[in-house]
């Protein structure tokens, strides 16, 4: 026995894949599904660049095996926009210039998405605590924090998810 068949739902679409027991979800997303928005930073759980949502919760795709997520629903940065319309978190990161090199950004946004799933009105402290999972080596955290708080405010107004 080597490869195993799994069924995973990524951004609303189901895929059937044969995977090795040691392949990570990150490997699968990037190399098999071509979803390169999810970044590989340290590949050992330290940087948060590979953060995706599984069943609405932020998890590290580099420390998750593809075989472990059989039957699960996965949301990546590519699943956030609705057609040509960016998600409010993405809009807000652009508006606040919360991006420099951009490598940590998808992880930060997916982490923020999971936070807002269960807390639509987070305090600045809660946002900062959440972002402690994500390492940024360019801009720092001021602008991402502002961007997330602003996006939360806009999303509450729209009452969107």
């Amino acid at each position: 026995m080597t490869k195993r068949d799994i069924n995973i739902c990524v951004n609303g679409k189901w895929y059937e894949l044969a995977v090795e027991p040691y392949e990570t979800l990150l490997d699968i997303l990037r190399n098999r599904l071509g979803l390169t928005g999810t970044k590989s930073g340290c590949a050992k759980g330290e940087c948060g660049a590979c953060t995706v949502n599984i069943d609405g919760k932020a998890i590290l795709s580099c420390l998750t095996l593809a075989v472990q997520v059989d039957g699960k629903e996965i949301l990546t940065i590519e699943g956030l926009p609705k057609g040509a319309e960016l998600h409010p978190l993405q809009e807000s990161f652009v508006k606040h210039s919360a991006v420099q090199c951009g490598y940590c950004t998808p992880g930060m946004i997916m982490n923020a998405k999971a936070l807002l799933n269960h807390n639509s009105n987070p305090s600045e402290k809660e946002v900062r605590k959440t972002l402690s999972s994500n390492l940024c080596r360019c801009t720092g955290y001021e602008r991402p924090v502002k961007a997330i708080l602003d996006a939360a405010r806009i999303m509450r107004g729209k009452d969107e998810r």
Binding site: G45, G48, T51, K57, A58, I59, L60, L63, T64, N111, K129, T130, S132, S133, N134
Partner: peptide, 8 residues
């Protein structure tokens, strides 16, 4: 660790 690691 971090909140994301604690989720797992």
């Amino acid at each position: 660790a971090t909140p994301t690691v604690r989720n797992m």
